[in-house]
Amino acid sequence: MPNPALTEAVYYILLSLMQPMHGYGIMQNVEALSGGRVRLAAGTLYGALSTLLERGWITALPGPKDNRKKEYQITPAGRDAVEGELLRLRELLDNGTKIMEENR
């Protein structure tokens, strides 16, 4: 069964983590990527990162044990999840565009 829809936050976190990044870096990157539309709050981000770590979609990089500077990166399983999401988004967009065009 294909993965269910990713949340916007998870989608952008995974995209950010194609490069190693720490928490604050992710917050800034997501805000920049979405043109200021998506603003991740630190508490929400922490929960999402914990769940993604448990799922094995991201990994914490070895390095400073300091949680303030801990860096994360996407795993192959995480990349698969993004690829699956891209297919799903494409389907949504194609269907939406087609049906709305026909009914304009």
Binding site: G23, M27, A42, G43, L45, Y46, N67, R68, K70
Partner: peptide, 11 residues
Amino acid sequence: VKYLEFLEGTG
């Protein structure tokens, strides 16, 4: 402690 440190890292 882990959570509070993470938050500190975000300002």
